[in-house]
């Protein structure tokens, strides 16, 4: 019962933040800061993880496919795995680790330091001011970061498959372009947007409600909020991935 209640609370929290954002002043400036926090700061880690994921996939899939004499299908396997599944999921997990935990901690500290109360006394909607821009930035950044992850990952697969293990590069890229359809890309984007909204809402919710949700007050409460934000966001991404995939397939 409490889970249902909490889900409802999180949904209302996210809705309140989105609605609050459109009632804010200087929306563009706030949105730019949100994009910097979620998009720009996360880019290096997304690019790095994307590259290594592609490199490892190139290796693993090659040695699996070669057993069946199907190493020419490496491009297809790498591209579809990344675009349909690994790209959106790993991007979401990386953003949670980088931006989500920082956001939960920052909001928790702002709660403990009474900055959120201060906004309320100044007749400024704290949700729209602090959380809204980050949620809207999420809608913009997650699909872009996912696309970057996918592209770099596919390139990583090419590096191990073609340059290291001698799969013909023309065959690799031809299989990539042949096998990937618009429906695959669309599915990946749907997942990216859903994961983005879920993770950032959960992280913001945990930080914003540190005073109510954490077992301890003060610094320990903030640390607990950040940890729970990361854990629950990650679990939610994997659960949502299963649900969305079963609808899309």
């Amino acid at each position: 019962m409490s889970v249902v209640f909490e889900l409802g609370e999180i949904s209302l929290f996210g809705w309140g933040a989105l609605r609050g954002f459109f009632a804010q002043r200087s929306r563009f400036a706030k949105l730019t800061l949100g994009i910097h926090e979620i998009g720009v700061r996360c880019f290096p880690i997304i690019a790095t993880v994307g590259l290594f994921t592609g490199l490892v996939m190139g290796l693993q899939l090659y040695y699996t496919l070669v057993k069946f004499g199907a190493e020419s299908a490496l491009g297809t396997a790498v591209a579809l795995s990344l675009i349909r599944e690994l790209g959106p999921v790993l991007t979401a997990l990386m953003v949670v680790g980088q931006a989500g935990s920082a956001m939960a901690s920052e909001l928790g500290i702002q709660r403990n330091d009474e900055q959120i109360d201060a906004l309320q006394t100044m007749s400024i909607d704290p949700l729209g001011f602090l959380v809204g821009p980050r949620l809207v930035a999420t809608l913009i950044c997650f699909p872009i970061l996912t696309a970057i992850f996918d592209l770099i990952g596919i390139f990583g697969g090419y590096l191990t498959g073609s340059l290291l293990l001698n799969v013909d590069s023309g065959v690799y890229w031809n299989r990539v372009f042949e096998s990937v359809t618009w429906a695959d890309v669309q599915g990946g984007y749907i997942k990216a947007i859903v994961f983005g909204l879920l993770t950032i809402t959960i992280c913001a919710y945990r930080g914003y409600n540190t005073h109510r949700k954490a077992s301890f007050p003060g610094v320990r409460g903030v640390s607990e909020s950040a940890t729970r934000a990361v854990v629950w966001s990650s679990v939610t991404v994997l659960a949502a991935d299963y649900l969305i995939t079963s609808f899309l397939l």
């Binding site: 330091d113 009474e114 109360d117 201060a118 006394t121």
Partner: peptide
């Protein structure tokens, strides 16, 4: 407070500056 039309302000003990 806005319902009452009275403007309010609050100075917090620990300042609550951003």
């Amino acid at each position: 407070h806005s319902d009452t039309g009275v403007s309010f302000s609050y100075m917090f003990q620990n300042n609550a500056l951003f």
